Simulated scan of single mutants.
Amino acid sequence: MFRKIIFWSHLVVGIATGLVIFVLALTGVILTYEMQIAALFDPKVSAPSENAQMLTTDEILAIAKPVFEDQTATLNYYSDASKPLTVAAGRHEMKMIDPYSGAFIEAGSNPTENFFHLAEDLHRNLAMGFDSTGATLVKVSNLAFLFIIISGAYLWLPRKWKWPFLRQKIFFVKMPTAKARDFNWHHVFSFWVLIPLVAVVGTGVIISYPWANDLAFSAAGLEAPMGGGRGKGMWARSSGGGSSNLPVEQLVSYQSILDKAKTVESNWKTISIIVPSADNAKNVDILVDTGNGKQGATQQTVTYSRETGDVVEVKGPDEMATPTQALKRYLRFLHSGEVYGIVGQTLAGIASLASLFLVWTGFALAWRRLISPLFRKKAVPTN
């Protein structure tokens, strides 16, 4: 009786939310390698002439600082010399700069921007806007999908633990009918993507609902962060170290400090100068990243004195943020898999792709169970 209740709940919830889940899975597949694909089409920079020199960091900062006045901004250098510099305040505010001319580069010049923006809007709110009916449908469907996964895991358990039955739920097997094939596919896909799918959908629920967010942090023994997470950058917290008594022109240049930061990690991918608000700030924080920008474990902050150029402090990944901030970041980028780099992105993408097959085979099985019998001709009794 209990199994029957779970089965029908699984079926009804799946039918009710299947179309929205399909959209979420499809856009999830599209967004899998967004970062890498967008980078391919990002504007490139090159020296205008053979003897051309890049502007110094101090010259770049003089151009960049006024753009994000009264905000904590970062100036980002990349190991890939063909990438323009970027000045950013948080995830959603960024401008690119040509390091040779100091000119700002229009972000809209990347042809993938509008495409991925639409995909993200569909993924978050069915392109209906923040706090819209579409956003509510996405949240409800995320929660429903988590229930479908959990109930499906229970229903997957075979009644007979014998290899012939188990084999059909673990491996693709040639089946005699379309119904049997869909049954086989539905179980096989759900088995192989269960763990990454729980991670992707579970974090989606945590992102969607404050109560789920509170529950996740409570389970970790932490207090849930306040606010919606649209700050000016999780690690962008310039210490500054107070004001120096030296004249600004006597302080160590940012270019000299950048040159030193480049020797901290030979395999650095990004070096970010967390721009102090005061021109005569005593210290400056430099974030050195050897990962993709989303992995806290690959980052460290080195604080330099602008009076001497010496290292004042080094903070590793565990010291850069509070446990609450670290967990918040982890959950956010676990949803996309980016917290585990290209491998995590791939697993998240595979889980999304498998979800498309789960929805399709689920609808097909439901159709055959509920709808097809209505069109079958009833046998006419003979006298």
Rank of each mutant, 00 (worst) to 15 (best):
I5W: 15
A25Q: 07
T27H: 09
L31Y: 11
T32W: 09
Y33Q: 08
M35K: 15
A39G: 10
L40T: 00
F41E: 00
F41T: 13
K44E: 14
S46L: 03
Q53S: 14
D58A: 05
E59H: 02
L61S: 07
T86E: 13
M96Q: 13
I97S: 05
D98M: 06
Y100W: 03
S101E: 01
S109I: 09
E113L: 14
F115S: 02
N125P: 02
M128C: 02
S141H: 05
L146D: 03
I149R: 00
L155S: 10
W156D: 09
I170S: 06
V173H: 10
A180F: 01
F183R: 05
F183Q: 04
V188H: 03
F191M: 12
A199W: 10
G202C: 06
G202T: 04
I207N: 14
Y209M: 02
D214K: 14
D214E: 15
L215P: 04
P225M: 01
R230Q: 12
W235G: 01
S238Q: 11
G240H: 02
G241T: 05
G242S: 05
N245M: 10
L246H: 04
L251G: 10
I257P: 09
N267R: 11
T270G: 01
I273M: 13
V284M: 07
T298N: 12
V311Y: 06
G316V: 02
D318V: 04
E319P: 09
M320D: 04
Y330A: 14
V343Q: 10
Q345G: 04
I350L: 15
L353K: 01
L356T: 07
L356P: 02
V359A: 08
F363T: 00
W367Q: 04
W367S: 06
S372D: 11
